[in-house]
């Protein structure tokens, strides 16, 4: 039934879109995860190949028909789009010209098109009722207060590559994969000095040594995202975007290792909200799916242990009393 509905939605979208070739295929947010992604479901896939024939390859062929000359050249990495990643990304259903100027259809690309200001997240997502629940306006506000905002040339795209970014935390069934995916976004610059120094003149950050203070470092890196400690908690955003300077990062263990763990408002926010709504149990998600020392507290076990402990102490006191009166 779901597949049939999905196909119907895709077919309807296809028909509507054919009437206006360049109309972006925006899905209803609730359908976002129901439509099956992939090149075969993108109605612009064939048109996109006009671009991807070069930009989807690591090498492209530059030809001059007048002089009957051609040369094979490396496609610069920032102009390269991986087809597989693109058709699995959040923007998988778009045609290239939904976001890029139509003049890019011409080759060589005109300078005017190349100098045109590219779209930003809020050009599509901001001030739109359909996407209001993602709070893009608040994300922008947080970003503007974040350390990344001070870096010239930085934008949303640096972390959320529009050609590959895939939101994971909402749909995650494997938290470990989500953590790896999200941390790799940070590490792409922070663990790659070649890339890092394109935007910053700071000394190289050595992630491992700068986190020397962190006990069981490998387990932490595997179990939590960088942003758990490096952002300020946001009440309304699912993923906080206000990145704080390194000296303001969380360093106190008990911010996470406690029953009222910070992780409930960060990493486990989506799941804990869901479980809280379903079962009304605040740290259920930590109790059932993961393990955080100090945060995993089963009230039943705690209560039982207090009762047993109290019982034993009372028996001992009674025994002492009996010994004293029967002396």
């Amino acid at each position: 039934m779901k597949i049939a509905l999905t196909s119907l939605i895709v077919a309807l979208i296809s028909v509507i879109s054919l009437t206006d070739k360049h109309a972006p295929v925006l899905q209803e947010p609730q359908d976002e995860y129901q439509v099956e992604k992939g090149r075969e479901n993108n109605i612009f896939a064939e048109d996109n190949e006009n671009c991807l024939v070069c930009h989807g390859e690591e090498y492209y062929q530059l030809s001059d028909t007048a002089q009957d000359k051609s040369e094979r050249r490396i496609m610069p990495s920032n102009y390269y789009v991986d087809r597989d990643e693109y058709y699995q990304s959040n923007h998988w259903s778009f045609g290239c010209l939904d976001c890029h100027p139509y003049d890019f259809e011409k080759f060589p690309h005109p300078t005017s098109a190349r100098l045109e200001e590219p779209f930003h997240c809020n050009d599509c997502h901001g001030f739109d009722e359909q996407y209001a629940h993602y709070h893009f306006d608040e994300i922008t506000e947080e970003y503007n207060e974040s350390v990344h905002d001070d870096i010239e040339g930085f934008s949303c795209w640096k972390c959320h590559d529009p050609h590959s970014y895939e939101i994971t935390i909402r749909t995650s069934e494997n938290l470990e994969e989500t953590i790896l995916y999200d941390n790799n976004i940070c590490l792409e610059c922070h663990a790659n000095y070649d890339k890092f120094q394109l935007l910053s003149s700071r000394d190289e950050i050595r992630i491992v040594s700068s986190h020397d203070w962190l006990p069981n470092q490998a387990a932490h890196f595997k179990s939590v995202r960088c942003i758990e400690c490096h952002t300020e908690i946001s009440d309304s955003l699912l993923v906080a975007h206000k990145l704080r300077p390194a000296d303001k990062a969380v360093k106190r263990c008990t911010e996470c290792h406690t029953s009222n763990s910070r992780l409930l408002a960060t990493l486990y926010k989506f799941q804990s909200k869901k479980i809280r709504n379903d079962a009304g149990f605040v740290n259920g998600v930590i109790l059932n799916q993961s393990y955080v020392i100090g945060a995993n507290r089963n009230p039943a076990i705690n209560m039982l242990s207090f009762i047993i402990f109290g019982g034993v102490v009372l028996v001992i006191i009674f025994h002492i009393f009996m010994r004293l009166i029967k002396k």
């Binding site: 006990p215 106190r252 263990c253 406690t258 029953s259 009222n260 100090g294």
Partner: peptide
């Protein structure tokens, strides 16, 4: 460790020291 960060609790040892 078990009751780390408990509200109103007097912590006699820091969490990282307790771990060590």
């Amino acid at each position: 460790l078990r009751f780390a960060g408990q509200e109103n609790a007097v912590s006699l040892i820091r969490f990282d020291q307790a771990v060590a």
